[in-house]
Amino acid sequence: MTDTDQIPDKALEKEPNAFAQMMRMLWHDKVALVAVIFLIIVAFCAIFGPWLLDAAATKQNLRGRNSPPFDMAKGWLFVLGGDALGRPLFARIIVAASNTIMVATGAVLCSMVIGSTLGLIAGYTKTRASQIILRLADVIMSFPSLLLAVIVLYMLSPSVTNIIIVLAITRIPIYLRTTRAEVLEIRERMFVQAARVMGASDMRIIFRHILPVVFPTLLTIATLDFAFVMLAESALSFLGIGIQPPEITWGLMVSQGRPYLTNAWWLSFWPGLAIILTTLSLNLVSNWMRIALDPVQRWRLEIKGKKQ
């Protein structure tokens, strides 16, 4: 097996105006462009949503509940319909973006950083520490997340931080084991061996040579984990541990709309769609970045650009 993998990201640094080049590539890949725009909108809602629409999103109207979508008679806020308490779903989805993104980003980032760091150690070193880390991952994988949540609820008071902790802990093993599996293999590759012979420090080998190869897989998992975490969070709210009404998240909206699925589908459909679209966009952007940042792959985007 000839092994001549290259060290990525070098070509990009040489480019006089890397940002402009990225933008140009993005402009040519319309799907990625739409995804990026959608994510910017979500981020905007997460930051400014509660400030702009909080009043509208909490205004109840019991006698005008479950109003169907696409009926503009009650104002543009009701374009996606009303919920079981007559609140406009559109406004609620925008306001909920804030909590949702905070919890999901927090949990995914924490688990990814902790998991992949431990995975790097476990894969790169052959010491006892790596064995301990792996058995710890086994233990976490077998520990029911609900039990963890109940324990946290009893020991600490309910708060957003706690829900992030619970979700992050349960998601650590997947990053840990995936990182380690890849490191086990990359460690043996020619270029890593060569770097080691040339006297590169462990840190340098890990961060300059190994991490860039592992990162794309981690990113793929992380983007899909966003959806998982957003939905799992609502199950923990049931216990009283996480976001409590009248505070709201997309996951909570989805689960509150569940009984209405066959009568008023819009209650859980729109927030669910928000989750799907966010996940989809994250994934598309990460796929695109993976190609755009990889000099070996970049021709795909550039060729397409020239064609158009």
Binding site: F226, S268, G272
Partner: peptide, 15 residues
Amino acid sequence: ATFLSLIGASAPDFW
């Protein structure tokens, strides 16, 4: 394939 599988993977399973 990517599109459909991603929608499936991020949709609430009870739906």
